Amino acid sequence: MLLLHNEDAGTSDAESIATGEKIIGAPVTRVAVSAGTGLDPILAEHTDEDVIVAGGDGSLHALLRALYRRDELGRRRVGLLPLGTGNDFARGSGIPLDVTAAAGVVRDGATRATDLIVDDTGDVVVNAAHVGVGADAADSARPLKPHVGPAAFPIGAMIAGLVRPGKRLTVVIDGRTATHPRHRNLMVAVSNAPTIAGGSALLSPDASVHDGRMHVTISQATGPIARIGYALRLLRGRHVDSLDVIHGPADRVLVAGESFRVNADGELSAPTVSRSWRVLPGAWRLFVPADRATGRQPAAEAAGEAGPGTEAEVRR
């Protein structure tokens, strides 16, 4: 097995990784990577080995992006030792947040086919991608993370929500236009798992990383009072019942309009005026607790990629 970890990991993380390695038991090759390290040479050197990521959503994002571009999603099993700030994907997939318990999941060897969202640039979404206040919140939270940890996410969202006016965008969901540029959108998000912001917000209460769909959320709560109400309801997933929110499952989503940035699993894109996403059902295999190891075989092994989507069951 190949174990990838952050070369800047602190002492406590390094100790957790060492403990996890002992629990896994199988021969493990540890490789330290940095934010600017390309994974292609590492993966090429360790052909066909299962890969364990010691990190958070961003680290898992980097690995799956590399595996997707290398067409290796169906050939390698992937494990996660959650050492990130938010660990939302681990929460949504049932992986224990305790590294010792998560290592036991890898050791036990049960896997499940897991969905992946991909965009038109060749990038991926493991947990969630945001346009509008979600991307602005990530930008505001970034300098706070070393000081306040997971609390940086809600603080960043509060700052962004108060000062950003919203974006004029067209959003097309499975071929159907859901919003027009005449309306400002506070946030547009596509998600694979339920939570964001370190579990502090329940963006898609009914989302599952194994259901073969992504979930889209559009908030048009752009007035001052409406923004506060949206933020409060988002904490418990009650925003989906609001009249100014569009929410539901989808196969394909297109966002276009005035310039925006995308926050995909905490990674901010360059400004763009268009981005589209589609879901690949069961595209990769994730080590999961034994009681969760049921479901489809990876679509990547059967067909290479997801087929054309159907009209989303989107409610307003």
Rank of each mutant, 00 (worst) to 15 (best):
T217P: 07
R107Q: 14
E7K: 13
I42Y: 02
T47A: 15
V106W: 04
L2D: 08
M214R: 02
L39F: 10
V33W: 05
Y68K: 06
P96G: 08
L116S: 08
G309A: 03
E7P: 01
F287T: 05
G199F: 11
E311V: 00
I225K: 11
V106L: 06
A135R: 05
G36A: 08
D265P: 01
D115R: 04
S259W: 03
A26T: 14
R176P: 02
E267I: 05
P150M: 00
A14I: 09
S59A: 15
D71K: 04
I23M: 12
A66C: 05
A231L: 09
T37L: 02
T217M: 12
A9K: 10
L254H: 07
G237N: 03
A299I: 06
A138I: 00
N192H: 13
A189F: 01
W284M: 04
V133P: 00
T29F: 09
M1Y: 10
V51C: 08
R213I: 06
P150E: 01
S274Q: 06
S242Y: 13
G309V: 00
D251N: 05
G282A: 03
I173C: 11
L3T: 09
H61E: 08
A221L: 01
A300Q: 08
K167C: 00
R69S: 06
A197Q: 07
R30N: 06
A303C: 14
R164H: 07
L63G: 00
V53K: 09
I117Q: 01
R107E: 13
D120L: 02
P194C: 12
R77D: 13
A152R: 03
R275K: 00
F153V: 02
S242Q: 15
G166E: 01
I17E: 09
D120V: 05
D40N: 10
R168I: 02
P271K: 11
T272N: 03
H247G: 06
D48M: 10
L162A: 15
L81H: 13
S219M: 10
L63K: 02
A207D: 04
V209M: 10
G109H: 02
L2H: 08
R65Q: 10
V53T: 05
G122A: 02
S208H: 13
A9D: 14
G94C: 13
N192T: 10
P271L: 10
H5T: 00
A32D: 07
N185K: 13
P146E: 04
L116K: 03
V99C: 09
D206L: 13
R316P: 11
L144I: 01
A113D: 03
A303Y: 15
E21N: 03
M187F: 00
G166D: 01
A9E: 11
A152I: 00
P165G: 09
E45M: 15
R164W: 04
K22R: 14
R285W: 13
A14N: 12
L83R: 15
